[in-house]
Nucleic acid binder design. Sequence first.
DNA 1: TTGAAAGCGCTAACAC
DNA 2: GTGTTAGCGCTTTCAA
Lengths: 344, 344
Amino acid sequence: MQKRVSLKDIAEKVGVSTALVSYVLNGKEKEARVGEAAAKKIKKVAAEMNYQPNLIARGLKFGKTHTIGLIVADISNPFFAMLARIIELEAQKRGYTVLFGSSDEQLEKSQNLINTFLNRQVDGLIITPVAGSQSQIEELRNKGVPFVLIDRGFSELETNVVVTDNHDAMYNAVKLLIRNGYKKPGIIAYDTPLTHMADRIAGYKDALKDSGIRFNARWMAKVPYGNYKEHVTAALDRLLNTNGRVVDALVFATNSISVQSLKALHARGIRVPQDLGVISFDESDVFDFFYAPITYIKQNLQAISENAVQSLMQSIDSRTRKYIRVTVPSVIIKGESSNRRKTP
Amino acid sequence: MQKRVSLKDIAEKVGVSTALVSYVLNGKEKEARVGEAAAKKIKKVAAEMNYQPNLIARGLKFGKTHTIGLIVADISNPFFAMLARIIELEAQKRGYTVLFGSSDEQLEKSQNLINTFLNRQVDGLIITPVAGSQSQIEELRNKGVPFVLIDRGFSELETNVVVTDNHDAMYNAVKLLIRNGYKKPGIIAYDTPLTHMADRIAGYKDALKDSGIRFNARWMAKVPYGNYKEHVTAALDRLLNTNGRVVDALVFATNSISVQSLKALHARGIRVPQDLGVISFDESDVFDFFYAPITYIKQNLQAISENAVQSLMQSIDSRTRKYIRVTVPSVIIKGESSNRRKTP
DNA sequence: TTGAAAGCGCTAACAC
DNA sequence: GTGTTAGCGCTTTCAA
């Protein structure tokens, strides 16, 4: 790599000190009362030599790198990819660049990424925390590292966090099903203590309760994140065995669960919504192609990302220990999969 | 943010110089013949104080940051998100971290990202180049910056580049359609001079020629990247107006074009493959849900990403000016959308 | 066997 | 007005 030109190179060429060059190139010629002639010459030479500041050196000097670390569960999942896209944009607007990594919902990877990013002196972190990572997050808090959790948080930990109003979203979805005549709505969710799932499940249960329907444990399937595809298929087999279906409607707690479920429903020839009402959390391109367009809960990713970056910036700038919790509303996009049940 | 512990802190606590601490913590105690007692004490104290090296400082010292910049067209596009995922993994294996950004196929954004990343002293770049960015890429070459183009390249520019064998892939797809009895296969592609599109179109034309079918300019639609959705719909209107269809089969040159096209076909009630044979370049979850599963060309993203990272590492390490061009084969995954045409 | 010191590129307080 | 210098954290040469 060709040697980059430094302040020193310019200083030598012009015949002044690096200090002057620094002042001028940082627009501080006025404060530093740099001579007009010198300033002019410096600017000219800097342009000629195509000077570009070394941000690493500046970072070392200031202890600030204008870099943030983004840790998502899996960047190849469209949901997180979209978050990443918006965060990138918001960060860039504020002069920040983004390092990213995928935790794969694994504690060890999460810790490695956190360490790597901190050693690279990021100014802050945006994290979708992994189940069981409380201690990792707490350590960040103890160290005073600016960070914000996104998509999910820990109820027992006070932190900056930006999440959808998961309870509310799921509550409304289930209510919609019940209003449309479904009597036994079930749910397939991930088996994790993380708040986003817990809240969605709570919303589901509360909707039942408020509708005078007694929750039946057999209506709920919790699948592990690893090998979720097989587990989802198995769960559907249990919930929908033909002699006496356990449920007459299902809400899927994430888009990955939805896509896999729809494949299985399709393969089994189960008709939606005649045989089964369906609502999904999060959207997917495939929903338009299912023969009955799928009703889904649409999170406001823009708002989530904006708020996350903004919270993080505040944390970085103010250095306070005040934590902000932001809850973002979502909407239900109605397809046909939740249509009114024909009373048999 | 709590002050991080530095070599100096440890040195003071132990009562030695920072040099010793540096040797020991870098495993150079043998070469530097550090006393055993001192080494032991240093390690102990470092562990106690939970020392973490400042990679920024190291980067400044060595002129090497172990960071690579990844510039894709749009990280929220599943195709690029998947590339990013694998690149992240491969980079990490080699001790590198990834900065990312989306160019949005815009020259200016591309240039900004390149500048930002270079100023942050990345060791190299992986880029999906934007149409018309030859000069940007050439400048990188002139500066001796290690980089590799991915997904597409410039025929007139010798660079490191890793791409699918686009000509071959498209050639085989069109041949398949023709073998299955389609007489007038058309194509919808992006209107760009980038090699990936040019090669796909050339593959399409060559397949026609080798099959003794004369290419008809009306069979091809080129849509601009911006507002592609409207343009794709309009193109389909032209290609498929009911009184005398212009084509009897279509290949879609990217998955975004495919998804949009399938929506339009669905809306118009055009039957696949009875009314129209279909093959797509790149995959999508939606293909399984279209009533006739879509035949598609599956690129080997793993191989592309691995090769890209490997080429880049070589470039970084060897500092030579030898450029490598890697072409990766793809496969056709057969659905029903390209099934044998029933002769009327 | 250990320490002092220079230097990576940049900034800013201070001296001239 | 301009230059000198110290220092951010780390590595490494050279001298002790």
